[in-house]
Computed example of a mutant assay.
Amino acid sequence: MPKASNLQKGHIINIDNHPYQVKQIDVHTPSARGANTLYKVRYASLISGQKLDQTYKGNDNLEEMTVDKRRVSFLYRDQNLYTFMDSENYEQYTLSEEALEGQIQWLVDGLEGITALLRDGHPLCIELPQTIDLEIVDTAPAIKGATATNRNKPAELSNGVSVLVPEYMTAGEIIRVNTETGQYMSRVKS
């Protein structure tokens, strides 16, 4: 049973026998003496996708829901359904667009390193790898001498997402992007 002060993004919590995933945590530390630190947590229901906001004191106990974690890879999309395949037993799991909120733009064919969270053999959601390598397909030309400055320019990636990259980057380069923040991390050596 984790305490509210130990809660992390992605944890699955049991609220009224329904699985909710932690999406955001805001910490409020009051300035008054003896006041408790408050943790405002935004959850998303893994069944309906509905949002839920709760506020806790740091020592409040929460009930973590036990889920099975399976390594899967992304196979294909069929309208608003996304199919994944278990890397060990080749079983296929399908999730709706609503269950994958905020993750769809990172799903490229054959993406591996994905973890599916299952309860009683049914998929609830997925966890993407922390980073993904993608190719820059369109960006402004590189500026000579741009390595000396710390300025960025927009670049469109092979999955259609636009991110800010350093000015010296060119189309055709492979970069590493953080799937949680959607920000450029580094260039991938080829």
Score class of each variant (00 low, 15 high):
Met1Ile: 05
Asn6Ala: 07
Lys9Ile: 04
His11Arg: 11
Ile15Leu: 10
Asp16Trp: 07
Val22Trp: 03
Asp26Arg: 15
Val27Asp: 09
Thr29Trp: 10
Pro30Trp: 00
Ala32Pro: 00
Gly34Arg: 12
Leu38Asp: 06
Lys40Pro: 03
Lys40Val: 14
Val41Trp: 01
Tyr43Glu: 09
Ala44Asn: 14
Ile47Ala: 07
Gln50Phe: 02
Lys51Thr: 09
Leu52Pro: 11
Leu52Lys: 14
Asp53Gly: 07
Tyr56Ile: 03
Asn59His: 06
Glu64Gln: 15
Glu64Trp: 08
Met65Ala: 11
Arg70Pro: 00
Arg70Asn: 06
Arg70Leu: 07
Arg71His: 07
Tyr76Asp: 11
Asp78Ala: 13
Asp78His: 12
Asp78Phe: 01
Gln79Tyr: 03
Gln79Asn: 13
Asn80Ala: 07
Leu81Asn: 13
Thr83Phe: 09
Thr83Leu: 01
Phe84Trp: 09
Phe84Cys: 12
Asp86His: 04
Tyr90Gln: 15
Tyr90Gly: 00
Tyr90Cys: 03
Tyr93Glu: 02
Glu98Ile: 04
Glu98Met: 00
Ala99Gly: 05
Glu101Cys: 01
Gly102Lys: 08
Gln103Leu: 02
Gln103Met: 07
Ile104Asn: 03
Ile104Ala: 00
Trp106Val: 02
Val108Phe: 05
Val108Met: 06
Val108His: 09
Gly110Trp: 05
Gly110Met: 11
Gly110Phe: 08
Glu112Trp: 03
Glu112Phe: 05
Glu112Ser: 15
Gly113Leu: 05
Gly113Trp: 03
Gly113Lys: 10
Leu117Ser: 06
Leu118Cys: 05
Arg119Ser: 14
Arg119Pro: 00
Asp120Leu: 01
Gly121Asp: 09
His122Ser: 12
Pro123Trp: 01
Pro123Ile: 08
Cys125Gly: 00
Cys125Lys: 06
Ile126Ser: 02
Leu128Gln: 07
Gln130Phe: 01
Gln130Ala: 15
Thr131Tyr: 11
Ile132Trp: 07
Ile132Glu: 14
Asp133Pro: 13
Asp133Glu: 15
Glu135Ser: 12
Val137Asn: 11
Thr139Asn: 04
Ala142Glu: 08
Ala142Ile: 04
Ile143Ala: 12
Gly145Gln: 15
Asn152Asp: 10
Pro154Ile: 12
Gly160Arg: 05
Val163Tyr: 02
Leu164Tyr: 02
Leu164Ser: 14
Val165Thr: 04
Val165Tyr: 02
Val165Phe: 01
Glu167Tyr: 04
Tyr168Ala: 12
Tyr168Glu: 11
Ile174Val: 13
Thr179Trp: 12
Glu180Ile: 02
Thr181Tyr: 00
Gln183Thr: 10
Ser186Pro: 09
Arg187Met: 09
Arg187Trp: 03
Arg187Gln: 15
